[in-house]
């Protein structure tokens, strides 16, 4: 049973990865990152039930992850809005400050 959960998480992670690296819209990139985080959460909870040492610790960690992800989304959207005001676009490929 464990491997089935892990497989779903892997699929989810890879789709999220693909979206994060391909999509132009910065909001969608953020969404894809959320997908990847959720895949991790799924792994944690699955191991919490079927792992070598089953315990509730995995669930506690998932809780923390969710809290951090929530904070991340909030800050990410805020940065996005600030960037949008400055540059007038949300296209990721137009953000190339690192080249300069």
């Amino acid at each position: 049973m464990l491997s089935s959960y892990l497989m779903v998480a892997a699929i989810l992670f890879c789709i999220g990865l693909y979206g994060a690296l391909v999509k132009k819209n910065a909001v969608i990139v953020l969404l894809s990152i959320e997908l990847m985080l959720n895949a991790v959460n799924l792994n944690l909870v699955a191991f919490s039930k079927y792992g070598v040492v089953p315990s509730l610790t995995g669930q506690i960690f998932t809780l923390f992850t969710i809290a951090v992800a929530a904070a991340e989304v909030a800050v990410g959207i805020a940065i996005l809005i600030a960037l949008f005001r400055a540059r007038g676009t949300v296209n990721v490929d137009e953000y190339d400050e690192m080249r300069r």
């Binding site: 690296l21 953000y95 400050e97 080249r99």
Partner: peptide, 14 residues
């Protein structure tokens, strides 16, 4: 390669 695009860097990382 050094085009400042985060996504390109991510691709190379992967």
């Amino acid at each position: 390669l050094q085009n400042g695009q985060v996504q390109t860097y991510g691709l190379i990382t992967i």
